[in-house]
C-alpha cells in the first residue's frame, strides 16, 4: 500500500512537508522490558529531525528501529508500523532488510572507519558493498563523495593512509562519506558529535545543514543546543514515550508540555 502523508504548516506562507518515513504505534522491547511505547511520528523529507531526551529515554532504540537494527539484538521485539515512502519496512513482501539498510543509512556515536582500510578504501567499500556498478570511474566517485562529506580538501593528499589515522572529527565525516557512498535516502545519526571537540562538531553540523538538501536526516542527540541549531523538527522522548513533536523553534521557545519545558530549560531531574 502506498501511503504518503503531507503536513501543512499554517504560518505566514503555507509550507507543505512530505513525509519520508511514517511511524505508527511503534513499541519495542528488550526481553520483557518495554523500551518504547506507541510512538507516532512523521519524518519529513529533506528535513532534519532531532530526537532529544535524557539517557535511557529510548531515542537510540527508536532510530535503530527505522532501519531494523533493533531486532538484531537477542530477545528484542517490536510492534507497530514504520513506513518508508508509504511502504511498511516490516512487511517482508515489499521490503528486504538489505535494501532497507541501504536506503536508510546510519552513522554511530563513535567513529567507526574500517580499521584496516585506507581512507580511499573506506569510501570505495561502501560503493562496492552496495553492489551497484559505479557509473563513472571509482576514483571520481570517491572524490565526489568525500567532497559531499566536506572532507576532500583535508584528505586529498593522504587518501592511502589508514582511516583511523584521521582526527576524530575527520573519522566521523569519513563514516558519513561511507554512508553516503551507498546512496541512501535517509541518514540516521546516533549522537554523531558526542565524542568530538567544538570545532569538529561545528563542521559536522555544517555538513548536516548541507546534506538535508538531498537527504532526510534524523539525529539523536543529548545536546539540546545542537538540536536547536541543526534541526527543523524536534521530538522530545521521555521514558520510552514521545512527549512532544514540533517545529524546533516552537520546542525551544514555547513547548506545549510541562515535561518538555522542564527538560529544555534544564529543570528536569
Amino acid at each position: 500500500m502506498d501511503r504518503v502523508i503531507e503536513k501543512v504548516k499554517k504560518e505566514e506562507k503555507m509550507v507543505i512537508e512530505r513525509s519520508k518515513m511514517s511511524v505508527e504505534n511503534l513499541s519495542a522491547w528488550f526481553g520483557d522490558k518495554q523500551a518504547l511505547f506507541n510512538i507516532n511520528i512523521e519524518l519529513f523529507e529533506n528535513k532534519v529531525t532531532a530526537i532529544i531526551g535524557p539517557s535511557g529515554c529510548g531515542k537510540s532504540t527508536f532510530i535503530r528501529n527505522l532501519n531494523r537494527l533493533h531486532e538484531t539484538i537477542s530477545g528484542a521485539k517490536v510492534s507497530g508500523k514504520v513506513y518508508l515512502d508509504g511502504r511498511d519496512i516490516f512487511d517482508h513482501n515489499c521490503c528486504d532488510v538489505v535494501t532497507l539498510r541501504r536506503r536508510v543509512g546510519m552513522v554511530f556515536q563513535k567513529p567507526t572507519p574500517f580499521p584496516t582500510m585506507t581512507i580511499y578504501e573506506n569510501v570505495a567499500a561502501g560503493i562496492k558493498l552496495y553492489g551497484k556498478k559505479p557509473k563513472g570511474k571509482l576514483d571520481q566517485i570517491v572524490e565526489q563523495i568525500l567532497k559531499q562529506a566536506a572532507l576532500w580538501d583535508e584528505v586529498k593528499d593522504v587518501l592511502y593512509k589508514p582511516g583511523p589515522s584521521l582526527s576524530g572529527g575527520q573519522q566521523q565525516r569519513l563514516c558519513i562519506a561511507r554512508a553516503l557512498a551507498i546512496e541512501p535516502e535517509v541518514i540516521l545519526l546516533d549522537e554523531p558529535c558526542s565524542a568530538l571537540d567544538p570545532i569538529s562538531t561545528a563542521k559536522i553540523e555544517e555538513l548536516i545543514h548541507k546534506l538535508k538538501q538531498n537527504y532526510t536526516i534524523i539525529i539523536v542527540t543529548h545536546n539540546m543546543q545542537q538540536a536547536a541549531r541543526v534541526a527543523d523538527y524536534t521530538a522530545f522522548f521521555l521514558l520510552g514515550e514521545m512527549i512532544e513533536f514540533e517545529v524546533t523553534s516552537k520546542i525551544f521557545t514555547a513547548p506545549q508540555d510541562k515535561r518538555t519545558e522542564d527538560y529544555v530549560t534544564g529543570r528536569f531531574g
Binding site: Q225, A228, F252, T253
Partner: peptide, 9 residues
C-alpha cells in the same frame, strides 16, 4: 530575535 536566541545561541 527570540528564535535567534533560542536556536542559534
Amino acid at each position: 530575535c527570540i528564535n535567534l536566541i533560542a536556536l542559534r545561541q
